[in-house]
Amino acid sequence: MDYFIELFLSGLTRGSIYALIALGYTMVYGIIGLINFAHGEIYMIGAFTSFIVATTLSIYGFPLAAIVVVAGVAAAIWSSAYGYTVEQIAYKPLRHAPRLAPLISAIGMSILLQNYVLLAQTSDFLPFPKLIPEFAFMEPVAHVIGSSDLVILITTAMIMLALTLLIKFTRIGKAMRATAQDRTMALLVGINVDRVISATFILGSALAAIGGLLIASHIGQINFAIGFIAGIKAFTAAVLGGIGSIPGAVLGSLVLGLTESFATGYVSSDYEDVFAFSLLVLILIFKPSGLLGKADTKKV
């Protein structure tokens, strides 16, 4: 039973991380209908920035609390900056181009960013400093859930709540929903669509950066290539939930996290990634609208 609970909780942890990344995919897709292939790299850059900042601060002897806050903020700022820049360079000029053009450009961006980090930093796996301490009060349940799992779950839940409020009640949130429904109409009622799109990229990137920080600290190591597989999995989660739908992305992520956790725990860990890819292929083929998405009717 303990093993089951352990797998369940680690699945939830996994799922919440996927959710942080999947939200970026789903929001961008909802608004401009583009698969932001470079989103996984934004997450990787978030993880790298927090690694660089945290390690530097710890070498200079700052206290842990300060390190956590500064690394988190820095990761969010720089990831957002990268997300914004990628949008401006690779997608904005192609807004009226044929559908495949921005996708090819996105793939190019992904390769570019990966190799940029590889060349500017290193290809080795780097040990990530432990930012989340082992809490004493977690001692009795430590065999099923670690402290960092707990922190990840709580942080993710809080972020989801904040995001929901932001989208429901703020001006920019409303503008985002309007743009997602009908871009031309939003433009006509005076919404600055370009700004909404940029804001979406910035928000999505910041979420991915927090995800990057949390998972890097959880797993304890990072590398320039972590974005690719994490990106694909988060995209799988977003599609599973119904791409374009925010609750769908969270649901899809949790489902994917749990299935992966149980599959590797009870079946075999060799085919962990094959499993995610197969799931992706199957959903796209049999139910491309996902669990909570709407089917789109083609206009002729």
């Binding site: 690779a90 000029p93 090819i104 961006m109 390769i111």
Partner: peptide
């Protein structure tokens, strides 16, 4: 050659634009 993949990525983006 070290910058090979970097350049390939840049080429995909630049050509599209």
């Amino acid at each position: 050659s070290e910058y090979r993949m970097l350049a390939f990525g840049a080429i995909l983006v630049a050509m599209m634009i």
